[in-house]
């Protein structure tokens, strides 16, 4: 057990390292001019710009920069943003943005699980009948139509229809409703889809037939056997979902003007804010690897067939 965790941890660190170094190096391939907004290029001369870059350490060999960054990291210093929020410490930036996004993420995750599982059960309960068709239709809409499109229409029309705000206000809870709902649409579909699939799989297994032969009612078998077994393979994704509530949705945060982390990475990449990109990529890589790891631990805890001493 201990050995397994150690091995997995080392392996995870390696993955994170490779991802990080790869992104770090790719970023250094970008042209130097990208570090300056167009207006700045017009206003300043070549020498000022070069000295600025030198001061920032951006002209050093990439490996030197890498070493410096890691050194700072161990001192708890994430560095400062270059272009997106010039000179603001990244730690401060994240500390401000993450709570907002996480609050939305957490709320929508809860809604997603509750409604998603309910919808999934409804679909199996009324398989090949109205419940199933309803759920399938919903899943189809959410998964097939580009999210941007339906999110946009929800913002424009549903807000009008229900008389809700079209943008986010920090101090106005009713303005939080739409973004939370929008954020949970995808995960509702995801949970419903997979719960239905796993429950249908379980339904055809011998032990379910044997449970029915024992004389248990269908309802009892559904509740005690099929549902509980079908939920196990979903558990593995819980830690990832929970960790990634801080990543936010770019589209929703842009549409509702939420000051969260959603668009941060894309903006940072676009504006070539290397310091910021590095930190965010590192953060996401750690979260994703950690999520998978915790997922494995969790499933080992709930599924007696899986032990951690053997791989697979």
């Amino acid at each position: 057990m201990g050995k397994y965790i150690l091995k997995r941890t080392l392996n995870s660190i390696l993955t994170v390292m490779i991802v990080f170094v790869a992104v770090f190096m790719l970023l250094r391939l970008m042209p130097l001019s990208g570090y300056f907004p167009p207006e700045m290029i017009k206003e300043t001369d070549e020498a000022t710009r070069m000295s600025y870059l030198r001061n920032q350490g951006l002209l050093d060999h990439p490996l030197v920069q890498l070493g410096r960054f890691i050194g700072q990291l161990f001192q708890g210093n994430l560095g400062r943003s270059l272009t997106v929020y010039p000179k603001v410490p990244i730690a401060t930036l994240l500390a401000e943005k993450i709570p907002v996004t996480a609050a939305f993420g957490f709320a929508s995750m809860i809604i997603g699980i509750v409604l998603g599982l309910s919808l999934g059960m409804l679909m199996v309960r009324f398989k090949d009948r109205w419940g199933d068709h309803l759920g399938t239709g919903y899943i189809l809409m959410v998964r097939a139509i580009p999210s941007l499109i339906y999110l946009f229409f929800i913002q424009v029309w549903v807000s009008l229809w229900l008389n809700l705000d079209m943008v986010f206000y920090d101090d106005k809870p009713t303005s939080w409703i739409l973004p939370v709902i929008c954020l949970s649409l995808g995960s509702i579909a995801w949970y419903a889809l997979w719960l239905r699939r796993f429950m249908v799989d379980e339904e055809n297994k011998d032990y379910v037939k044997f449970a029915l032969v024992k004389g248990l009612s269908k309802k009892q078998v559904w509740r005690e056997h099929i549902f509980k077994n079908a939920i196990i393979p979903l558990v593995i994704y819980l830690p990832s979902d929970l960790l990634f509530i801080i990543s936010g949705s770019l589209v929703i945060e842009t549409l509702y003007v939420i000051p969260g982390t959603g668009g941060l990475l894309t903006t940072a990449i676009e504006k070539q804010d290397n310091n910021l990109v590095q930190v965010i990529v590192l953060m996401y890589a750690v979260l994703s690897v950690l999520g998978v790891f915790l997922g494995d631990l969790l499933i080992a805890a709930v599924d007696p067939r899986i032990t951690l001493t053997e791989d697979k």
């Binding site: 011998d206 037939k209 032969v213 024992k214 248990l216 509980k228 067939r305």
Partner: peptide
Amino acid sequence: GKKIAMVFQDPMTSLNPV
């Protein structure tokens, strides 16, 4: 199950694994 009970062929799959 109460008055008439049944046992299946394959014991490996007849019991709920979890």
